[in-house]
């Protein structure tokens, strides 16, 4: 009985974000914070020490009016498969205390707050800035402790945290599946808070190993190249580094797709630097 459940085919949960649909409203950020008990400061002026598991970046094509175009890029943790897609994510391989690991049955990169001792090496390793440090102990406005989710443990000062693809929702979905004596969970049973909160339906979440799932159909991941999208309109951030992220982006606009990676001048035509403002 035990063996049966563990023999179930490995999942590879991933996310596809349609940047042409994203309006930059920030609902995903808010939903994420309340779902995951993300602490906040009384004064959030300094964004570089605020915690935002899901962060929306704004970029432009750098052209002047009337050709200016804007695009918003929501950035959760990429849950990198790492070089060769073997689970040697940039952060997992460097953590000295095994406080973060790669789950081969789900493809999710964990972060264990009670194991982390706050050396911040993983933050240095992550090119996406998806990892955040708890510079302070969380202070909840009085009464707010009661609204915290019991499914996500709150963090203490001095540890690193990051997006978990709402893993507790996967656990809950699996519980239901066990109770109903089903082999596996369905696509709609496990959805992240950001995907559900997005009013523009720009965020799609599912199993990249399952060709029935929407995420698979949208990007057609190439298993022989660490899941690189075969769909030409899809791309991943910093593809060249070989981090093999599980978050994909889609855009019809070429300049947006170009902004996903760095190109050396001369080697790639139509190369342009796009800057945030």
């Amino acid at each position: 009985m035990i063996k049966k459940h563990n023999k179930a085919k490995a999942h590879k949960f991933g996310m596809v974000i349609d940047l042409d649909k994203c309006t930059g409203c920030g609902s995903c950020m808010v939903a994420c914070m309340s779902e995951n008990n993300v602490p906040f400061k009384e004064n959030e002026t300094n964004k570089k020490d605020s915690i935002t598991w899901m962060h929306v970046y704004r970029l432009t094509n750098g052209k002047s009016f009337p050709d200016t175009e804007i695009c918003y890029i929501p950035r959760p943790c990429m849950h990198c498969g790492g070089k060769g897609d073997h689970g040697h994510s940039p952060c997992v391989s460097v953590c000295p205390a095994t406080a973060t690991d790669y789950d081969y049955t789900t493809g999710i990169v964990s972060q264990i707050y009670t194991r982390c001792f706050g050396c911040r090496y993983c933050m240095a390793a992550c090119p996406y800035h998806a990892r955040y440090f708890n510079w302070w102990d969380p202070i909840w406005p009085s009464g707010m402790e009661k609204t915290l989710s019991p499914d996500v443990s709150p963090r203490m000062r001095g540890v690193v945290e990051k997006c978990s693809f709402c893993f507790h929702r996967y656990q809950a979905a699996k519980d239901t599946a066990y109770f109903e004596e089903r082999e596996d969970i369905t696509e709609d049973e496990y959805q992240t808070a950001c995907a559900q909160a997005c009013p523009a339906n720009a965020i799609v979440f599912g199993d990249l190993n399952n060709s029935e799932h929407e995420v698979y159909k949208l990007v057609k991941p190439d298993p022989y190249h660490g899941g690189r999208p075969k769909e030409p309109k899809a791309f991943r951030l910093l593809e060249r580094l070989g981090t093999n992220p599980k978050v994909y982006y889609i855009s019809e606009r070429e300049w947006v797709r170009k902004a996903g990676d760095n190109y050396v001048k001369g080697k790639e035509k139509d190369h342009k630097k796009h800057n945030t403002e």
Partner: peptide, 10 residues
Amino acid sequence: IGQPLRGWFI
């Protein structure tokens, strides 16, 4: 380190 009391985890 952020949690000095856990330093021995290394």
